[in-house]
Design a protein around this nucleic acid. Sequence first.
DNA 1: CCGGCGCCTGGACCCACCTCTAGGTCGTGG
DNA 2: CCACGACCTAGAGGTGGGTCCAGGCGCCGG
Lengths: 140, 140
Amino acid sequence: MGLSIGQVAERTGLSVHALRFYEREGLLADPVRRESNGRRVYTEDDVDWLDMCIKFRSSGMPLDTIRKYTDLVRQGPGNEQDRLALLRSHQDYVSAQIQELNECLNVITHKVDIYTESLDEGTADCLWVAPGPTDTSAAS
Amino acid sequence: MGLSIGQVAERTGLSVHALRFYEREGLLADPVRRESNGRRVYTEDDVDWLDMCIKFRSSGMPLDTIRKYTDLVRQGPGNEQDRLALLRSHQDYVSAQIQELNECLNVITHKVDIYTESLDEGTADCLWVAPGPTDTSAAS
DNA sequence: CCGGCGCCTGGACCCACCTCTAGGTCGTGG
DNA sequence: CCACGACCTAGAGGTGGGTCCAGGCGCCGG
C-alpha cells in the first residue's frame, strides 16, 4: 500500500524532483509519511491528490493558488464556501481559456485553409493574409 | 497612417516594453520604420501582424517558433509548405490543449457540483472527494 | 567488501518571457 | 527657458516552475 517516490513519479508522470519540490511548496495535504530511514511513503490518496494538483496545474492554476486550496483543505471542515469560491473562480478561468483557445484555433485554421487552398491550386502567391473574416489585406 | 509605439501598445494590449522586446527578438516581419529622430512608426499591417503574434502566443506558441514562422514569411514565397507544416503542428497543439482543458474543466466542475450540493443540503461534511466519477474515497 | 541503485537534503541553476532601470534625446506648452 | 511626457538604447532584474548537483546514507547482489 505504501509507494516510494519513484513509483509515484512513474504513476503521476511528475519527476521525482518535482514531487519533492511540490512537497516543499506545501502542495500536499499531509507532509508525507516517512519510513524509519527517512524515505517518503506515499498512499493512494496522496496519488489521487497529486493527480488533482496536476489537473489544476495543467489548467493554469499557479502553485500559489494550489497551496491556498491545500491550506483550506488542511484546515478541515468549515471553509467549504472558500474552497468553492476558489474552485469556481478557476472554473471560470478555465472556461475563458478554452474560449480564447477556440478563437485562436479559428484564426489558425483559417490560415491553414488558405495555405492549403493556395498550395492545392498552385497559386502560391498572395499569401499575405489578415486574421479578419473578410480578408483583403496584409501580413501572414 | 503611421502609429507610434504608444498607440500600438494601446491597440494591441502589449506593453511598450514588450513591443520593443518583440522587435529585438525578430518577431516582426520588417524591422519597423523609423522617423528621422529614430522613433518607431508602425503601420496597420504591423498591428495586424502583432495581433496574429498575440494569437499565437496566447495559444502557447513559444517566441522561438513565432520567430521561425516570421523568418519563413520574411524569406518570401517558396516555402509555403514549411509555413503550413508549422501552422498545422500548432493547430494540433492547440486542439490538444483544448481537449486537456476540457478534461480539467470536467474534474473541476465535478468538484464544484459536489461542494455546491453539500452546502445546499447542509451536509458540509464528507467533502473528501476524489476526481473519479464513482467517488468513494479520498482527498479534496 | 565493493559497486550501484534509490533515496535524502539544500541550494544553485535554468528557461521563457517579459519588465524595469539608467541615462539620454525630442518636441511641445506655459 | 524649462519642465514634462513620449520616445530611444543596452542591459539588468524578476517571476514561475521546475531541474540538477553535490554530498551523503542504506541496502542488496555478486
